[in-house]
Design a protein around this nucleic acid. Sequence first.
DNA 1: ATTCTATCCATAGATAATCTATATATAGAC
DNA 2: GTCTATATATAGATTATCTATGGATAGAAT
Lengths: 109, 109
Amino acid sequence: MTKKPDLLPGTLDMLILKTLARAPMHGYGIALSIKRSSDDVLTVEEGSLYPALQRLLLQGWVKAEWKKTETNRRARYYTLTPLGRKQLGIELSQFEQMITAIGRVLQDA
Amino acid sequence: MTKKPDLLPGTLDMLILKTLARAPMHGYGIALSIKRSSDDVLTVEEGSLYPALQRLLLQGWVKAEWKKTETNRRARYYTLTPLGRKQLGIELSQFEQMITAIGRVLQDA
DNA sequence: ATTCTATCCATAGATAATCTATATATAGAC
DNA sequence: GTCTATATATAGATTATCTATGGATAGAAT
């Protein structure tokens, strides 16, 4: 029984960056946003999400600050940096290239 | 410097199965075929290829037999089994679903 | 003859991404 | 006062892929 994957490996950073490109957001919100906008197909597990955010911080692609949510809870808000925006562009174009290439392999007679 | 990946993780089995769905082939031939039909975008390294083929054998998705190539060299030819054909269908539909979902996340205003 | 290139297989070990499981904490609803 | 959803985080396991080897041989080129 091949288990259905939660997401395509290698695409998480891109999805997070893209989500933050729309608006700064806290981790939990990012996960919810991706889940909802993908119609529940993509699920970002906590054990994937937070390490990924640490990676992005380390790379300088996002910055973080603690704030209160609208509902008065403490949360860490992430914002895309200029470098992160650039990186998003790179990842988007690489992804598109990959998908196109895979498409060619799959359709090929 | 983010290194350009050779392929999208999680898609190799699908690519191999699809390649074998067209014709039985030996490992080296599979790698060449994927590389060529993807216009050199996808490269299957030997260290990924042969372990992958072992996995597929173990799952019963392919079977193997030693033969001579047209150029008189010994090679191990892989053939898709009925189970492998079924698996290919599963992976294709999951992949398509994933790509669609990612597309929604990426285009979303 | 011999050296080079392409063909062919395979494994060991490193690296990296993701998942499972767990821990902690609190706001607000019931 | 208990439950649910919100919120962050890490440890450890699992798995996929890559890098780096090692071996073997056919046929072409020198």
